[in-house]
Amino acid sequence: MAPTVPTVTLNNGVRIPQLGFGVFQVPDAETTTAVTAALDAGYRSIDTAAIYGNETGVGNALADSDLSRDELFVTTKLWNADQGYDATLKAFDASLAKLGLDHIDLYLIHWPTPARDLYRDSWKAIEKLVADGRVRTAGVSNFQPDHLRRLLDGASLVPAVNQIELHPGLQQAELRTLHTELGIATEAWSPLAQGAMLQEKALTDIAGRHDKSPAQAVLRWHVQLGNIVIPKSVTPARIQQNIDVFDFTLSDDDMTAIAELDRGLRTGPDPDTLN
């Protein structure tokens, strides 16, 4: 029996599954099989992006599923080259067509690209998509505190989500605190640091005490922090293992030990310099 995944209620009342399935770096030809395996394992939230080149594969898996549309939560993202008001609307139409859907549950600006200085224009376009009922929830990804504050100056919607690189090696305390103040949910990409920290003794010890894998221990840490988390895999056994994190609880000592692993370790680009 598939586990029941808890939901997080966003600032507009929409609920998102706290644990979803990411498809970053999954080739389009493999995406349909991977997403189908995830849906079979109990995932109901699927996270893709225009730049991943696999929205069509995601859409095919959703179309082949017996699940109703209202059981699914689909996220995609606006790529950097498509920022700007009109370009955003055009890019959204392209993503929607590839996914084969009539609306997106969560649409994110993928990166702030501050040197382009177009993310506020893109946000106005996304606000229109929300008003038109084509996007249920609007959010951003990889926004730093300064980017968030500038976006909010003149905005009519507060982003519901900021999807950021977040794992034991990069815990983003300042940003998570700001999210709480602003009513923005924190969503973690690269939640396992691409495996870079799974051999840490603190994690292997915690995993051993709970008869779980280090990856499961880290995903459980995210859940207990309140993060939304989107692990990725193309291996059916790993896909299943990553969702099996709701039958144990980390102790306060476990959480403290993981907190001590923070070291500013980025596995992806710096949002202040990527353009």
Rank of each mutant, 00 (worst) to 15 (best):
Ala2Arg: 11
Val8Arg: 06
Asn12Cys: 09
Arg15Pro: 11
Gln18Ile: 14
Leu19Ala: 12
Gln25Phe: 11
Val26Ala: 09
Val26Ile: 15
Glu30Leu: 09
Val35Tyr: 00
Asp40Gln: 15
Asp40Arg: 13
Asp40Cys: 11
Ser45Arg: 15
Ile46Cys: 03
Asp47Tyr: 08
Ala49Val: 03
Ile51Pro: 15
Gly53His: 07
Gly53Lys: 03
Glu55Ala: 11
Glu55Asp: 12
Thr56Phe: 04
Val58Thr: 06
Ser65Cys: 06
Leu67Gly: 13
Asp70Asn: 14
Leu72Tyr: 08
Phe73Arg: 01
Val74Gly: 05
Thr75Met: 06
Asp82Ile: 07
Gln83Asn: 11
Tyr85Trp: 05
Thr88Phe: 06
Thr88Lys: 07
Leu89Ser: 06
Leu89Phe: 01
Leu89Ala: 08
Ala94Phe: 09
Lys98Val: 08
Leu99Pro: 01
Leu101Lys: 01
Asp105Thr: 05
Leu106Gly: 01
Leu106Asp: 04
Tyr107Leu: 10
Ile109Pro: 07
Trp111Arg: 11
Pro112Glu: 03
Thr113Trp: 11
Leu118Phe: 11
Leu118Arg: 13
Arg120His: 12
Asp121Tyr: 07
Asp121Val: 09
Ser122Cys: 10
Ser122Val: 07
Trp123Tyr: 04
Lys124Ala: 13
Leu129Ser: 13
Leu129Met: 13
Arg134Gly: 09
Arg136Gln: 14
Thr137Pro: 01
Ala138Phe: 06
Val140Glu: 07
Ser141Glu: 09
Asn142Pro: 12
Asn142Tyr: 10
Phe143His: 02
His147Arg: 09
Leu148Tyr: 05
Leu148Asp: 03
Asp153Glu: 13
Asp153Leu: 04
Ala155Asn: 04
Ala155Val: 03
Ser156Trp: 08
Leu157Ser: 03
Val158Thr: 15
Ala160His: 05
Val161Gln: 05
Glu165Trp: 02
His167Pro: 01
Pro168Phe: 00
Leu178Met: 11
Leu178Ser: 05
Glu181Val: 11
Glu181His: 05
Ile184Ser: 02
Ser190Ala: 09
Leu192Cys: 08
Leu198Ala: 01
Arg209His: 15
His210Phe: 08
Asp211Asn: 12
Lys212Ala: 10
Trp221Ala: 07
Leu225Glu: 14
Ser233Ile: 02
Val234Tyr: 07
Ala237His: 13
Arg238Glu: 15
Gln240Thr: 14
Asn242Gln: 06
Val245His: 01
Val245Asn: 02
Asp247Pro: 04
Phe248Thr: 10
Leu250Glu: 02
Asp254Arg: 06
Thr256Lys: 15
Ala257Cys: 10
Glu260Lys: 04
Leu261Trp: 00
Leu261Met: 02
Asp262Ser: 03
Gly264Gln: 01
Gly264Lys: 00
Gly268Ile: 13
